[in-house]
Nucleic acid binder design. Structure first.
Lengths: 352, 352
DNA sequence: GTGAAAGCGCTAACAA
DNA sequence: TTGTTAGCGCTTTCAC
């Protein structure tokens, strides 16, 4: 592993002064040369580069930040890292940012306690990161202005704010399409497994999906029934319980739209526990196109998770280079599988 | 949101000098008082605290790091953030570290390119983080010594190195137990869906699980058949293909042990695609106890993912406080579900 | 094109 | 107990 450098040798690492001495120039010139600034003679630059190379010199990130105000790291705030969707988005963004030389600082702010901790340090955050990506978290106006004021680019995923780059999907339309699919199959008693705003954290996705669901019903002349909308906080176990309540209704739904695949999996578990057959007695559609959706033949709304992360990272990078904020909307599409198929394929554990 | 402080007001943030002036003491005293060091009179400390509070002062992290060498951030290196296991571990560790005031810097090093990028900056890393948690990644001796030399605590998850804290499970024993379960069910042609070391990255888990698998066979007097061991790189889609090869064998296995639940899900998909009935014609056991394992009734080896992350974070914190390295081993246990049950429960999509 | 020097905001001896 | 004073390593005017 030659590239790891020499071990056990000099404990003290090279500083810019060492390089300057070795290259026989001033530290100012070293700084310029290494950062590719103009006004450095080619020969000088070459000498500096060589000196730096042979000394295995790398600028101390904290010293540069202190002097220049740049941190070379971007922060990512997520409600809950352990959810599939978020881990995919973060992974994709990280990959691009790493290539561009940026570190990724992670902030989970799913609970009020998290949120409080992060928000109370909100101003501080601006000192630790050059840009901030908020995944399905909408900043308050005050927070947004605080961040933009420091001219740190912010990009939000899942919501659109003024003066801030964003990447979104049309959650409303997507949810509407999912619901229409169910309607087209002849269902009218369609349950919704979603989430109430639990935290003070603004988390706009559930509302949008709910709106799409209701719009579809309305357009089809179906009166929404409040008792068909249950909350499961985007958790699989919660969805099992919530679906149980749905199935216990005097007039239970014949179909369910879950706002995430993970919750849809919970619906499947609940249905099985009560020997409710899917899709004959209960059709179910999810949202995400989780890697495992095809394993259980789940019909779902596919969204380009990885691309969302990549685009967010790009927008952050653009912002870092001074570009104006941009808004990007990415497409979704319905993937029809066995959980809603009129004539389904084979079952996963078909003989159980 | 009162705790976010005053917006739009002073653009310049308070420095330690401002606090010193306001409290009528020297910056040194401010520094001491704020960090809770001894040798500060109670009254003085109170005054400083109040001044800092009213000025909304927070020490610039980069300035402190530069002066003191502390970064208040811990790095986490993971092969692949997008995998369930890793996202759970990172999430759990982050939660604890955040509470303790540490930021988490994320490094994906699943590919050789990633690895190269990180390793070539390995020494640098020591300047950005106070401690490093390596998730299922074993450092080379040289890397380890470089990190320990800087006296930055390192903790490895999944492997045990000298002079470095670690948290592990007994992968070998766990895999052996899984295989024994299959043997006890009467199987002898047992496939293994695992992973070859693909990267130069040392990733010791697959070898350990393979060893356990083989040991079980051997102990039962079953000769391991090389063609029953296939590689799927811990990816669900790859596992589908790999299982296909297994099922195409002249003498296909009647059972499969997959080294991860995600791969086991792939096995299920492949089986279904060929109308191979689970568990009658193919018993399958996975590894992880992924949240969705119960959705598809997958028998699996449960490991305490969240606890692994938490313990790793604790060990890192301990190391930061000067404690000696410790090794922790966490338990696993087999969870028997429908995919190996002699008399299975209802199917997920039982009527499809 | 290059260098000198003044910080960036904080910590840590060393004095007092 | 508190203050003074060097730095930490780098960037960036401003001269030359």
């Amino acid at each position: 592993m030659a590239e790891t450098g020499s071990y056990g040798g000099e404990v003290r690492r090279a500083t810019i002064d060492d390089v300057a001495a070795a290259a026989n120039v001033s530290v100012a010139t070293v700084s310029r040369a290494l950062r590719g600034l103009p006004n450095v003679a080619d020969g000088t630059r070459r000498r500096v580069l060589e000196a730096a190379e042979s000394l295995a010199y790398r600028a101390d990130p904290h010293a540069s930040r202190l002097a220049a105000g740049r941190t070379m790291t971007v922060g990512m705030g997520v409600p809950l890292l352990a959810r599939w969707y978020f881990s995919q988005v973060v992974a994709a963004a990280e990959a691009l940012l790493a290539v561009e030389g940026y570190d990724v600082l992670l902030f989970a702010m799913g609970t009020d306690a998290d949120r409080h901790r992060v928000v109370s340090n909100w101003a501080d955050l601006g000192r630790r990161v050059d840009a901030l990506i908020l995944v399905d978290l909408v900043p308050t106006a005050a927070e947004a202005s605080e961040l933009t004021r420091r001219s740190a680019p912010v990009v939000t995923i899942g919501s659109r704010c003024e003066g801030i780059s964003s990447v979104v999907i049309d959650n409303r339309a997507a949810a509407q399409a999912a619901t229409e699919h169910l309607l087209a199959l002849g269902h009218s008693a369609i349950g919704l497994v979603g989430s109430q705003p639990l935290h003070t954290v603004s988390f706009p996705v559930p509302q949008a999906r709910r709106a799409g669901y209701r719009a579809a019903l309305r357009a089809a002349g179906v009166a929404p029934r409040a008792e068909l909308e249950v909350s499961a906080n985007f958790s699989m176990p919660d969805a099992v319980a919530a679906t149980g309540r749905l199935l216990d209704l005097p007039e239970p739904p014949t179909a369910v739209f879950a706002m995430s695949d993970e919750m849809a999996f919970g619906v499947l578990v609940a249905a099985r526990a009560r020997s409710v057959r899917v899709p004959e007695e209960l059709a179910v559609v999810g949202f995400d196109d989780h890697e495992l959706a095809r394993v259980v033949e789940l019909t779902t709304v596919a969204q380009p998770v990885a691309q969302i992360g990549v685009v967010a990272a790009q927008l952050a990078l653009e912002g870092l280079q001074g570009s104006e904020p941009r808004h990007v909307e990415l497409p979704t599409h319905l993937v029809v599988r066995g959980s809603t198929a009129p004539r389904p394929a084979a079952a996963v554990l078909d003989s159980l």
